[in-house]
Amino acid sequence: MKPGLRSWLDARPFVWSLLGAIIVWALTAASVAGRGAGETLSTAFGFATFYVIVGIGQMLVIAAGPGNIDLSIPSVMTLAGYLSMGVMRAQDAGLPLGIAVALGVGLAAGLANVVLIRGLNIPPMIATLAAGFVMQSMTIAYSRGSTAKPAPLLLAASLARVLGVPVIALAFLAVAALVAVVLARSVFGRSVLAVGQNARAAYLAGIRVGRTLILVYVVSALLAAVAGLLLAAYSGGASLNMAEDFLLMSIAVVVLGGSSIAGGQATVAGIWTASLFLYLIVTMLNVFGVGAGLRYIITGLIIIMVLALSKGRQTV
């Protein structure tokens, strides 16, 4: 490879998952002789949006340095999904309250994680895992006898399309762009990356490490809550297992997208390309008639292999 191309690629690690997404999409389209290829892409954009929403939050947390990870994402999603659908009672009038409840769940969950991590000095992985189980318990207890259907307006919004492109995808393309600007230009964004590269150096340079960590965990939980609200609407109602794949997926899109798992470096564009890649793989395997078992195996192996390859590139 020419050195110019090499450095161009190293600065844009999302290119690999973009290539992967294009290849998988082309294979899928070819296998159905081009019929429904546009529809496939449109659906992929719609569904990948959910991976993107939680992926951005997970990316910010992981970017804040080694050891930082949010394992409570699926529990926050399910709890926010259930509670917001519950207060909405399938009525448009309940929509503002539903959104407020979802955001409240996110805020509370994020703060709870921060209290455990910063206040009690519990390792983030276990703090978020344990907090997640408490929330899961709350959801199980609450879900008994609750009808969890979305307000018609929210359902319509989650399914709406403009020129074939899902509206939620457009919205979170904008959010992703905003996050990219924030990471590159704002004090908060630079602080996250600085803390992730070396928390002690960042502290000595006068960066408020504690406040930065509080913010990333709260933002992650808020995004997870929004994802839960939208996913519950998109699927026509909340269910207990609606977010079970999102723990691995939220981490996978960060890793596949080219962000460093060790922190200090984040690639927002990669969250989108990796989410599309992962969802298109599922679509392709479905089109090929592959069962759920093989689909899980292939997804798991791809994630491990890409992690091994990308880590190799960094250490060389």
Binding site: M125, L248, A292, G293, G300, L307
Partner: peptide, 18 residues
């Protein structure tokens, strides 16, 4: 953490196949 999470999909996949 990431490797074992990825592997969890592989174990689940094989279990569902069987």
């Amino acid at each position: 953490i990431v490797v074992t999470l990825g592997a969890s999909f592989v174990w689940l996949g094989f279990a569902l196949l069987i």
